[in-house]
Design a protein around this nucleic acid. Structure first.
Lengths: 169, 169
DNA sequence: ATTTTTTACGTGACAAGTCACATAATTTTT
DNA sequence: AAAAATTATGTGACTTGTCACGTAAAAAAT
């Protein structure tokens, strides 16, 4: 290996180390790993996709919900939920009714069949949550969530405000 | 509003509150918000997509890199990088050469043109990083990264190990 | 009462990201 | 030296997620 190849490798390693402290990349990486794991686990215990599973979990825990409510709970785009519902109706997992008080809304409810496919995932996904519970104390979880809150305040707006001490990398 | 509608709303709110403490959802939400913000910012200062921008940032900081190296740095799938490169070559932002020592690899390097489009984003994206720097002390960043490390150890495997005290939700 | 604004959701079009597989090249094992 | 295993990358096919827009319905303003 030539010196210039070694230098190239050194620069790659330095970059990797530097990015280990980049919160944007770290949070993205953690989220993507989490999603992949969830996907593998769900595939191992049934046929539900991640989004289908999340919908059923919300409905099992909270009863009938609107598309907007589920999107809010799941911190995702309403379009993703909206698109996930019709195939779930076809599979017999959920039913929808137009809102009685607000006919723009549709109220989604789980069916017995939906309960069944959801129940097949429960032990596995509960085990996954337990692993998190075991890994963090309540105080550590509080700290983690407070830090995530702060991060979110920065990434929620169009552009975060910065102090006068800003430096340009 | 009837009592049953009020109860439905109460259950929705309770579910939302409960999910505020769900690390999986919180980390995913934070990552997605971050990605959307980055996308908006990039659109406001040029035409680079998020993945194109990440590629250029890596190349600017570390010099020529292979697809696998960039995927490792960015904690993403090599296929995403692999697919992003040809259009960037067509746009004149990068060039590739087959690795001298390992003809399986291709070494990607930025061009002057790529530097130019990247430079147009630099102030904005640096400002974004500064906002993070301003929001967290070094100690808080250390804590945040340590917690993310721990979370990642749980989500990296096929299934996390759990203690005997596991409970099924 | 009417008009304007806002909201819920469905859809088009697209980007981001993943999984699996194939080919070529390299490394390891025999 | 040959065979087997592993790795780098490209690609097919798909899922996840987003942005923008349109329509219908509701709320707010006039």
């Amino acid at each position: 290996m030539t010196t210039s190849q070694q230098e190239r490798l050194d620069r790659f390693r330095a970059r990797q180390t530097a990015q280990d402290r980049n919160l944007f990349g770290r949070i993205s990486g953690a989220a993507l790993s989490s999603r992949s794991q969830a996907k593998r686990l769900l595939r191992s215990v049934g046929t539900l996709s991640i989004t289908e599973w999340r919908v059923l979990w919300d409905l099992v825990e909270a009863g009938p919900l609107t598309v907007t409510e589920m999107a809010t709970i799941q911190r995702t785009d309403h379009a993703l939920i909206s698109r996930t519902i019709p195939p779930m109706i076809e599979k017999g997992y959920v039913v929808t009714t137009t809102g009685a008080e607000d006919r723009r809304t549709s109220l989604v409810a789980i069916t017995p069949s939906g309960h069944t496919v959801f129940d097949e995932t429960s032990a596995t996904m509960a085990q996954r949550r337990t692993a998190i519970k075991d890994a963090f104390t309540e105080a550590e979880l509080d700290t983690f969530l407070a830090l995530i809150d702060r991060f979110e305040r920065i990434v929620e707006g169009p552009m975060p405000a910065v102090s006068q001490t800003e430096d340009v990398a």
